[in-house]
Amino acid sequence: MAAIPQRKFAAGQRKSQRGTEESPFVKWTLIAVALLFSLVFLLLPLVNVFAQAFAKGFTVYWEALHHPDTVSAIRLTLLVTVICVPINVLFGLAAAWAITKFDFRGKSLLITLIDLPFSVSPVVAGLMFVVLFGLQGYFGDWLDRNDVKIIFAVPGIVLATLFVTFPFVARELIPIMQAAGSDQEQSALTLGANGWQTFWYVTLPSVKMGLLYGTILCIARCVGEFGAVSVVSGHITGQTDTIPLHVEKLYNEYHGAAAFAVASILAMGALLTLGLKTWLEWREAKMEEGHQPSADSHQLSGAESNVADG
């Protein structure tokens, strides 16, 4: 009511308030500690990547990026991403849809299962696929006889990447879809839309932002996955090395500057991810502002109230 518009101003003004604010000394000490912590654990690691990448000059940097092994690692990473992301986006949509629109037994179990890859060590994830498809694995013999290579080949990398990246889209969408409720869908249905039209015109646009955000996270993880891929890839230079694996190899072979050069591509990807995320959040905040109902809607209530005219 009356307090809402006033509070908005108040938030900026509170600083001078005794009693409901910390003293300036406490406040700035806390800020200083927080800044120091972020400097060591956020800013320095980031800046260091680029500093080290260019430490030996631009030529070394350029050559490291143009080395055939690097190029093939980039190509492989892109291939894996292009395969995995659409599959997991599709799954994420289907899973979020199933969880929010239907009631069924074992629903909470399903949600837990979707979260599972987050809590499984990537190394263990990779190992599970080795157990299934490796030479000593369940299907190992059969695969070997038919000359199908999964482990230490691209399909294994794809599978491992699918596993570790599949919660991202669903996790973003489920809370949004739950919050949106099914009112909109139901009103679309009453207006004669069929299920598919409802999904396409009503559901999808309303979760667009979350979907985009989930996809970005999914891409970032696809590109950057290390542990799981490392276990199943076999590390064949020029064939089954993704960018992160290539970084490790360069580092272990004492090509520090080259390792950082290749790593700088990934760091730029990370920055791009952050940038997109910040932009999306900014857009969402702006849209919400636009939807704020006017606080003056009951301006007339005093004049129209009818009991007190006595």
Partner: peptide
């Protein structure tokens, strides 16, 4: 800093290890 808090999520772990080891 608010935007950078997610940096450890976005940065591939291999790169994180590399740069931290170097730092």
């Amino acid at each position: 800093i608010d935007a950078l808090v997610d940096f450890p999520f976005a940065l591939p772990t291999a790169v994180a290890g590399l740069t931290l080891a170097n730092l």
